[in-house]
Design a protein around this nucleic acid. Sequence first.
DNA 1: CTTGACTATGTAATTATTTACATAGTAAAC
DNA 2: GTTTACTATGTAAATAATTACATAGTCAAG
Lengths: 183, 183
Amino acid sequence: MSLRHILLGILQQPKSGYDIKKMFDQVFNNFWGAELSQIYPQLRKLTDANMLTVQEEPSDKGPNKKIYHTTPAGKEELVQWLLSGPVTNTEKLAYLAQTYFLGSLDNNQQRLEFLEDLLEHLKIWHQTLLDVQQDMRQHFPDYPHGLPDEEFYPNLTLMLGVKKVGAKVEWAQESIELLKARM
Amino acid sequence: MSLRHILLGILQQPKSGYDIKKMFDQVFNNFWGAELSQIYPQLRKLTDANMLTVQEEPSDKGPNKKIYHTTPAGKEELVQWLLSGPVTNTEKLAYLAQTYFLGSLDNNQQRLEFLEDLLEHLKIWHQTLLDVQQDMRQHFPDYPHGLPDEEFYPNLTLMLGVKKVGAKVEWAQESIELLKARM
DNA sequence: CTTGACTATGTAATTATTTACATAGTAAAC
DNA sequence: GTTTACTATGTAAATAATTACATAGTCAAG
């Protein structure tokens, strides 16, 4: 049940459900995702549990925003989650399972197409991450250890994001070469 | 609903539910996991859908095994899944979300402990992957492009596994250095 | 003046996943 | 001889997550 805690983390800085969704899509895309249909009910649960308070605000566009703030109880819940140690769930990357079974396609052209599709997807994903990091670098051009807390820890996850996606793009490229060498 | 297709993939070589579980834990640990309580009901569904057939066999230890085999319909279902293109679900790594919010702990020692715990976990995980790969290399010492299909594609996923976990271990190590520089 | 893109919040139904429980045989160590 | 570790199969209950649906306001382009 990590979503609950992630929402508390995000809401250290007050936001609406819709804002939170944008955060998942842009900043967290490398390690977490959630739909609005998950976010809204969870925000309600947390509010009922007195971990969040709501405050309505007019929006620039569209209907009123409901801005959620963390209560001290909410902050304490977040801290306890962090103190409980790293939560290490099993990764689920269906495309790697597909790659594993690619031998079940008897047409080599189809196998190549699969890997090329994958490479393209991974490159697009990489681009989003790089954009986010460049944005952050514009605001804070220092070496990372000089950043203030609110930027240092997010920056750590971006560092891994770039490494991880880099490894995947490299791998997909190499796999395509290997596959071509087999044709 | 990927588990269904992953089971069909695994059962290109007949196995029992228990054998499948070991496969997830050992070979697939880098990209998929499933509990026995997910595997058994799913095997039943696939059998009811005529995608699998069962055959009982005595076990070396414990009660009889139920060996599952794929039917032509099952094979076709698997091929269609592969032809539908890469399935790219969003990653969910709670420990990276925790890292992102680590600034909410005001004790720097606790933050360091968190990252050290994580590094230890990632190293252990890496070791499992390397063990599996060394095992595979013993059987097939060739360059990967010379491997037969049944080994070539699984080997591709291992190649990424090693890269990925390598990147994570590197990152955790670097993060600890950066954190120490901040203390 | 209407369509499309985007902001904004939510519910309902279905599916998937996890956790806990329940059973039972083998085989070696103590 | 009994505890521990492992093999082997499953069910039940609770949670979590996805997908589809439903509503409504703003604003710009055509």
